[in-house]
């Protein structure tokens, strides 16, 4: 197979085949990413087209392909501390005409995880993985209908730890960091364990929490979550600059989402604002028949266990408060 055969295909995952690392591709050119998560779109497409087969390429093919893609350049990036409204924000971006919103694509998340686990002292692997990440995003932003004008990428929460490296890849792309009160975030994560806390490659969380694999094996979920989100807040506080916007969950409203769009350089039309207002009333992570969104800060605060409160106080509250001060301009 010659590499040009893959034009219009999308990298749906980063995989290892027969010991060779590379990408799994699926011909989903022209498919709208209407589901809250990229993987949900891929799953829907696979279910509707069971006859289509994936193709595998090693990464060197990606470097060749990058030059051939006709793609939309990234408009804005969404980072978050998990369970804090970032999916709602990504869904709101979909209301913009010509927007392509790619939410937590596995190939990007896994390559960024390699930036955590595989980099070497002389920086060659860092550059290599960065080139791969850039190329994968370019592949995901390929024009299909020709009407695509904006590309928004929502990263997985653990990617926050690699924010500085991601900024080196795209120094001029504006980004928003969305976060929430640590106790409320932890209650949500502990009640319904997310994939990032269950990741079998414990090197990622060991790096994020600045501990060891052995150390995190001894931690409760509450402690691990508190340390991780504390790290995300601290990273946002350290790296935030004039290309970034800090946004607390408790600010989220249609008007504030409009401000985020403006920050990304996009002015929503009146009809798009109506859609944003409507979508922000839905539960964001359900792809269809969405139940109505219900504010749950009070319930989560009341549901917090003593352990959750203790771990939040020890590992997350201080960086959260510092980040809030930065957002509010309090020295």
């Amino acid at each position: 197979m010659v590499f040009t055969d893959l034009k219009g295909w999308m990298p749906v995952d980063a995989v290892v085949v027969d010991g060779r690392p590379g990408l799994a591709w699926l011909e989903i050119d022209g498919v709208d990413f209407v589901e809250p998560f990229f993987q949900q779109t891929v799953d829907r497409f696979r279910a509707n087209h069971p006859e289509l087969e994936e193709r595998f390429t090693e990464f060197h093919t990606l470097v060749q392909l990058e030059k051939t893609f006709d793609s939309v350049a990234p408009t804005g990036f969404i980072f978050h501390s998990s369970r804090c409204g970032s999916t709602m924000l990504a869904n709101a971006c979909r209301a913009i005409t010509g927007a392509v919103v790619v939410s937590e694509p596995p190939a990007v998340d896994k390559l960024i995880a390699r930036l955590i686990t595989d980099v070497d002292d002389h920086g060659t692997k860092e550059k290599l993985y960065s080139v791969f990440v850039r190329a994968v995003v370019k592949a995901l932003g390929q024009r299909g209908s020709g009407n695509e004008r904006h590309l928004f990428i929502k990263f997985a929460c653990c990617s926050m730890s690699q924010l500085e490296r991601i900024q080196r890849i795209w120094p001029n792309v504006p980004w928003v960091f969305l976060y929430r009160d640590p106790v409320e975030t932890m209650v949500s994560n502990v009640e319904n364990l997310p994939a990032w806390l269950l990741d079998e490659d414990r090197r990622v969380l060991a790096s994020i929490t600045d501990t060891s694999i052995d150390a995190i094996a001894e931690m409760t979920v509450a402690e691990l979550c508190a340390r991780a989100i504390g790290s995300f807040y601290a990273t946002a506080n350290r790296v935030a600059n004039d290309r970034s916007l800090l946004l607390n969950y408790n600010q989220l409203s249609a008007a504030e989402i409009s401000n985020v769009m403006q920050f990304f350089g996009v002015t929503p039309a009146a009809s798009e604002m109506e859609t944003i207002a409507r979508e922000s009333q839905k539960y964001s992570k359900s792809p269809s028949d969405a139940p109505t969104f219900v504010a749950d800060a009070d319930r989560k605060q009341q549901a917090a266990s003593e352990l959750v409160r203790e771990m939040a106080a020890r590992w997350a509250n201080e960086p959260y408060q510092l980040l809030e001060k930065k957002r509010l301009g309090i020295q």
């Binding site: 060197h60 470097v63 030059k67 960065s130 850039r134 190329a135 080196r168």
Partner: peptide, 8 residues
């Protein structure tokens, strides 16, 4: 047989 890509 060599591909080059700019970076940084």
């Amino acid at each position: 047989h060599v591909v080059v890509t700019d970076f940084d």
